[in-house]
């Protein structure tokens, strides 16, 4: 039976069995490929999206269990109009291979939505579920602090 969800502010109908994880409905069903598949077991964070503003691993949530409106990296900003946090990623030249960065950004956006003065410990606690094999962590940390400062001034 088709499932209807609110994704990036729009109602979307997905014709897939309702046990299919949100990740795979987004990617294969809707062509929203900014959200990445990394592990399928919530161990890498590459698939992180927001449900009602909260960061979740979309590989673990079946379509039937999505409890609110979904925001993906595409809903955060665009190349022409990046969100403040995305601009901080660009300014700090964070990405290398870039594959984990959608998930990193979505996780960091969740942190900044509740804490605009994150300490290093806060960043460690919030981000340790997000794996990056290129080792961009030092620049991710810098970009989070940069975005926090800009959001505070805003």
């Amino acid at each position: 039976m088709p499932t209807t969800l609110t994704i990036n502010g729009e109602a979307k109908t997905i014709d897939l069995p309702d046990n299919v994880p949100l990740l795979w409905a987004l990617r294969d069903g809707l062509g929203l490929t900014g959200t990445k598949f990394g592990c399928g077991v919530a161990a890498c964070g590459a698939c992180t999206v927001h449900i009602d503003g909260q960061a979740v691993r979309s590989c673990q949530i079946g379509l039937a269990d999505v409890w609110g409106s979904v925001t993906t990296i595409e809903g955060l900003g665009s190349p022409d109009l990046p969100a403040t946090i995305q601009q901080a990623w660009i300014d700090n030249q964070v990405a290398q291979c870039g594959y984990c960065q959608s998930g990193q950004i979505m996780q960091a956006a969740d942190l900044l939505s509740v804490n605009l003065s994150p300490t290093d410990q806060d960043i460690d606690d919030a981000m340790q579920g997000n794996l990056c094999r290129c080792g961009t962590y030092p620049r991710i940390r810098a970009a989070i602090k940069d975005a926090a400062a800009k959001l505070k001034d805003a």
Binding site: T33, P82, V94, A95, Y99
Partner: peptide
């Protein structure tokens, strides 16, 4: 000099295209 990387905007906005992201008409998985 340290130049702005050409792949940075795409990789910060989820629009960079990896092979796993290629979408073609009628594609199966």
């Amino acid at each position: 000099t340290s130049l702005p990387r050409k792949d940075m905007v795409g990789k910060s906005t989820g629009t960079a295209e990896y092979a796993i992201d290629v979408v073609l008409p009628g594609m199966k998985f």
